[in-house]
Structure formats: C-alpha cells, structure tokens
Computed example of a mutant assay.
Amino acid sequence: MKIKEVIVVEGRDDTTAIQRAVDADTIETNGSAIGESVLARIALAKQRRGIIILTDPDYPGERIRRVVSQHVPGCKHAFLPKHAAISKKGDDLGVENASPEAIRLALSSVQEEAVEAPAQILWEDLHAAGLVAGEHAKRRREQLGEKLSIGYANGKQLLKRLHIFQIQPEEFREALILVLKEEQQHD
C-alpha cells in the first residue's frame, strides 16, 4: 500500500514500523519537544502532499498530535487503539509495537489514493550540481535547503527531502541557479 501523504511519527522506531506496513515517507518529531524546524517541514509537507499524524496512544503522543495540529491546521489523524500498540511484554505502548496489519488498518480510513509519482531528482543530479562533492557542496546544500524551505541536510538526506516534498526538477533547477549566481557574486 502506497501512502500519498507524509506520516508524522514520534521517532525512528515508529518510522521502521510504518515502513514494514506501508510504502510511505515519515517526518519524525523526535519526542514531544518539537522544534520549529520540524514544524516548518511538517507545514511544507502538508502544503505539498498532505499530512497524517500517527502518534503513540498515550499522553505524550496526544500532546505531540495537539502541538502539530495547532501549528499546522488541517492534518489528518490516524489512531491506533492501545491494545494494538502494546509491547509483547506489556511494558511499552507505542506505534513501534503495532503489527503491520494494525498500522494499515489505522491508516486506511484517512489516506488518499496515491497518485502517479512526479518526476524525481536523482543522485546524479545532485552530484552534477556539486551538492555532494567538492569544496562548495555543504554551502550549496545549505543555501538550496533555504531557498526550497526544506532545511539543511547532507547529500543523502537532501535527496530524500527533495522526494518527500515532491520538489520538481524545474523548481530544483531554478533554486540551484539562484544559489550558483549568489556564489559567483561572493567570489
């Protein structure tokens, strides 16, 4: 099952559980102390693809859901019942403990049908643009991330974010041209 929207989860283990169940991209809040940069990425993903919030069925999970919803109105909500999110030992409650079937069931009521994938930027495009190797690569990635509102990332994460936020090749080229022009002006 391919999910069009980006799924907001609490952490890396949740992402792993989601990816065992469905083909989807996630944004991790890294717990309940959600930073402004994470909220900005969620807002951009909402604008471009839509957001589904799937957090743990406990107080911290509900708090994260509330914070994200307040900062990014219009998100969809998927819920796991507590009995589906409890660990085998019964000592932990979370998305990471849910079976793939339980996750698919929680998501099935809120997700839209996936549309045909748009044209994507390739690793070779990043390399050709000097974004993954060379003396200016880091600075170019920083500036490109700022221009596209996706934040700074290393090469691998940049490619992932370009895909998550469905940055089109034309948008990428336009932002890259601005970055290169600014670089020439400073040299």
Score class of each variant (00 low, 15 high):
residue 84 A to Y: 00
residue 83 H to Q: 14
residue 64 I to F: 07
residue 134 G to F: 14
residue 67 V to C: 03
residue 99 S to W: 10
residue 147 K to H: 12
residue 35 G to K: 14
residue 147 K to D: 11
residue 77 H to Q: 12
residue 146 E to R: 14
residue 102 A to S: 15
residue 157 Q to G: 01
residue 141 R to I: 11
residue 98 A to C: 09
residue 104 R to G: 06
residue 117 A to M: 12
residue 127 H to D: 07
residue 89 K to M: 11
residue 34 I to H: 09
residue 119 A to Q: 14
residue 103 I to T: 04
residue 157 Q to C: 01
residue 121 I to P: 02
residue 56 D to M: 06
residue 86 I to R: 11
residue 115 V to R: 15
residue 88 K to G: 03
residue 116 E to N: 09
residue 89 K to A: 15
residue 58 D to I: 07
residue 110 V to T: 13
residue 146 E to S: 11
residue 143 Q to F: 06
residue 68 V to L: 05
residue 142 E to Y: 03
residue 117 A to Q: 14
residue 150 I to T: 08
residue 159 L to S: 05
residue 157 Q to A: 12
residue 41 R to P: 08
residue 52 I to M: 03
residue 105 L to I: 07
residue 47 Q to V: 01
residue 149 S to H: 15
residue 159 L to R: 10
residue 136 H to K: 13
residue 138 K to D: 08
residue 64 I to R: 03
residue 127 H to N: 08
residue 71 H to D: 12
residue 168 Q to H: 15
residue 153 A to L: 05
residue 81 P to F: 01
residue 164 I to A: 07
residue 48 R to P: 05
residue 129 A to E: 06
residue 52 I to A: 10
residue 146 E to D: 15
residue 103 I to C: 06
residue 133 A to S: 13
residue 168 Q to F: 11
residue 150 I to Q: 08
residue 89 K to D: 15
residue 38 V to H: 02
residue 77 H to W: 04
residue 84 A to C: 12
residue 145 G to E: 08
residue 89 K to Q: 15
residue 171 E to A: 12
residue 157 Q to N: 13
residue 72 V to N: 05
residue 128 A to G: 04
residue 133 A to D: 01
residue 170 E to Q: 13
residue 125 D to G: 05
residue 69 S to H: 06
residue 78 A to T: 01
residue 80 L to F: 00
residue 72 V to D: 11
residue 159 L to K: 10
residue 108 S to G: 14
residue 160 K to D: 00
residue 124 E to V: 10
residue 64 I to P: 00
residue 112 E to F: 11
residue 70 Q to I: 04
residue 168 Q to T: 13
residue 67 V to K: 13
residue 138 K to G: 05
residue 127 H to S: 10
residue 140 R to A: 07
residue 71 H to A: 15
residue 39 L to N: 04
residue 111 Q to V: 14
residue 37 S to V: 07
residue 52 I to N: 05
residue 85 A to S: 13
residue 78 A to K: 00
residue 163 H to S: 05
residue 113 E to M: 15
residue 153 A to K: 05
residue 142 E to R: 10
residue 76 K to P: 00
residue 152 Y to W: 10
residue 49 R to H: 07
residue 105 L to D: 13
residue 97 N to T: 06
residue 151 G to R: 01
residue 155 G to S: 08
residue 51 I to V: 11
residue 132 V to H: 01
residue 155 G to Q: 08
residue 154 N to G: 04
residue 118 P to N: 07
residue 148 L to P: 09
residue 147 K to R: 15
residue 43 A to S: 15
residue 160 K to H: 10
residue 39 L to H: 04
residue 154 N to Y: 04
residue 134 G to T: 09
residue 40 A to C: 06
residue 158 L to A: 01
residue 118 P to Q: 07
residue 124 E to W: 00
residue 42 I to W: 01
residue 69 S to C: 06
residue 94 G to S: 10
residue 134 G to L: 09
residue 147 K to N: 08
residue 160 K to G: 02
residue 149 S to A: 13
residue 149 S to F: 03
residue 33 A to T: 09
residue 72 V to R: 01
residue 49 R to E: 02
residue 114 A to G: 07
residue 46 K to V: 01
residue 154 N to M: 09
residue 70 Q to M: 12
